[in-house]
């Protein structure tokens, strides 16, 4: 019974939403959006679980003075300060009725001076990691890898002005070989063909997976029923 109810809900809602795609007439036309709104509402309430879990895990860590427990104090403090700054709109020139992001509000200051630089720092790690991963991965081990390497060089040059400067002297009849044009061609023809093939495969995979879920064949995400080998 514990499994049957969710499976029945999945079956009914799944087929109803699939059919609703083809029926614009109310109430079917809005079903998809309505159900997603329900999901969002549930997700908002579920956040209480997440926030509660965060406080519990880190609170325990501090209380039991486990390894690296001072970091947990930072986590809890960050959570509480941002929550209070946002909920009570501290420092907001228009008080509780004003826009949360007004200049001068503590929330906006926390955003500008802490949140934004931290986010940008994490994202900028990508530049370093792309370099080290490229260094390791781009080896001309065989013909295919060599083609990949050459394409990568053309894109790297073509995505900067340097590519343009290197081949600006090419006559109009050979403009295809102008590095930015070559890079554009690689991105919009071979790369696009590969992307589309992967997308078609993914879409079909999603259809098959969704059908398994709707038909109740795939249930391991619910914990399964001891059917696995």
């Amino acid at each position: 019974m514990r499994r049957q109810v969710p499976l029945a809900i999945t079956f009914i809602v799944g087929w109803t939403l699939i059919i609703a795609v083809f029926i614009p007439h109310p109430p079917f036309g809005q079903l998809g959006e309505n159900f997603t709104t329900y999901f969002d509402i549930i997700a908002v309430f579920a956040f209480i679980l997440g926030g509660g879990n965060l406080i519990r895990v880190h609170g325990n860590k501090v209380y039991k003075k486990r390894q690296d427990w001072p970091y947990s104090i930072v986590t809890i403090l960050g959570f509480v300060v941002v929550l209070i700054a946002g909920l009570f709109k501290i420092g907001n020139p228009d008080g509780l009725s004003g826009d949360l992001t007004q200049p001068g509000s503590l929330f906006q200051d926390l955003y500008t001076y802490i949140f934004a630089p931290l986010q940008a720092t994490m994202f900028s790690l990508l530049a370093f990691f792309v370099a080290s991963a490229s260094y390791r991965a781009f080896r001309a081990k065989n013909k295919e890898a060599t083609v990949l390497l050459v394409a990568a060089f053309i894109i790297l040059l073509g995505r900067t002005p340097i590519g343009g400067y290197l081949t600006f002297w090419l006559p109009e009849s050979l403009s295809f070989f102008h590095i930015p044009n070559l890079a554009y061609w690689i991105m919009t023809i071979p790369n696009l063909a590969g992307q589309r093939a992967i997308l078609i495969g993914i879409s079909l995979g999603v259809i098959a997976m969704s059908l398994r879920l709707i038909l109740g064949i795939e249930r391991s995400y619910l914990g399964g029923e001891g059917e696995r080998s």
Binding site: A131, S134, L157, T160
Partner: peptide, 12 residues
């Protein structure tokens, strides 16, 4: 981009 290319060349 040039620096990455140089490292890829060194790696090869």
């Amino acid at each position: 981009h040039l620096v990455i290319m140089i490292f890829v060349i060194i790696g090869n």
